[in-house]
Simulated assay, not measured.
Amino acid sequence: MVGKYDIEVYNNKAHYFLTVKRNITILQGDSASGKTELIRLIGEYEANGNSSGITIKCEKKCTVLTNVDWELRLASLNQSIVFIDETASFLKGKKFAEMVRGSDNYFVIVSRDDLALLPYSVEEIYGLKNVSDSSKYKSYKKVYNEMYKLYNLADVAGKVEPEVVITEDSNSGYECYKHIYGDKCETAGGKSKVYECIRQSDKDSILSIVDGAAFGADVGKVMRYLTLTGKKCVLYAPESFEYLLLKAGIIEVPKAVLEETYNYADSSKYLSWEEYYTDYIVQNTQKTVFRYGKTKLNENYTAPKIIDKIKNVMPEQIL
């Protein structure tokens, strides 16, 4: 499944707007913020249709997956947007994670917990906020619930002068960042180890670079720790290292591939956009001097002019 989809769900009491563009979207937030009510409305519409008094507007079928025969139901679904409440017992299980891989559905998951087995993006974690719009719907006085990004890591305020740069990547990405940051750079050895590296570091100022397209399950723990301790650390989360290479213009890339990735990264083939960008650069550099390998960086990427191109697409505050 590919594409970007607007979803509108409403009755005479509540009105929800959501936009989904990746295979996994996470909805978080405190109790009474409307998350469970959204799931209930979709489920009631499924059961009773228009007689429910609920309207759903979306190009794709919206459905709710519950504990009842969930494996059989999920196996039968295709080209659908599947909503799952955090009360679903299968949500954190290995079987569910396995069935998400290769599925041509999109998933909207309500969960206040981090879902470690699912590689979802830091850009697709949302809360629900209420926006009064009585001027538009005076007779109904509806309350609108729309999504807002829970973690916005793209903007770095002020110049960052780190004593250490911790990278999630231990292979090609790490080699490149080593050329940019020199001896300051060290690898965490994987996304699940970034938190411990930040926690154990004795440096006063830290920059951590992670692949945002798959770091969603880990970002909450990191941000909560930084908030609690006040430790000075900037988390820079581009989609992936391969995304930076493509954005840098080292090879010719159609603009839409980077700006409208949702139209290309088929969920039945790629579990995350990180996988899509990696596959794209591997396939499109095979017969060039910039042949890309994820485990070891082609030395042509370390040429001064190429390093400068990569730095030009990174925030100047962290360079």
Rank of each mutant, 00 (worst) to 15 (best):
K221F: 10
L118K: 11
N312D: 11
E86H: 08
E275H: 09
D6L: 10
S89I: 07
N298Q: 13
N50H: 00
V82M: 02
G93L: 06
S208P: 01
K141N: 01
Y174S: 06
L41K: 04
E316K: 02
D218N: 14
G173A: 11
V20L: 02
S33H: 02
V253W: 01
L65Y: 14
Y181D: 02
P315N: 09
N67D: 15
N12M: 07
T25H: 12
S121T: 14
D204M: 03
D279V: 08
P254H: 07
K57G: 11
I198V: 09
R22K: 13
I109G: 02
Y277C: 00
A214K: 11
K232C: 01
L258Y: 14
N23I: 14
M147G: 03
S103K: 13
A88L: 15
K129F: 04
V222N: 05
I166H: 00
S267V: 15
K296C: 08
E239Q: 14
D183Y: 12
S52H: 13
P119V: 03
R22C: 13
F107R: 05
V2R: 06
I209Y: 07
S201A: 06
K149D: 13
K287T: 12
Y181N: 02
L27Q: 04
E86A: 04
D266A: 13
P162Q: 12
N300F: 11
T167L: 07
P304H: 07
Y45M: 05
T278A: 00
F90Y: 04
G93C: 04
K203Q: 03
V164Y: 04
N130G: 10
F96W: 07
N130A: 01
E274H: 05
D218L: 02
L38E: 09
Y225D: 11
K60D: 06
T25A: 07
H15D: 09
L117C: 10
Y301T: 10
E163S: 09
Y195D: 09
I209R: 01
G53Y: 13
K294R: 11
S103V: 14
R112L: 13
Q286L: 10
G249H: 14
D133Q: 14
V110Y: 04
E98F: 04
S31N: 07
G189N: 07
G173R: 06
S172F: 02
E86Y: 03
L115E: 00
C62Y: 00
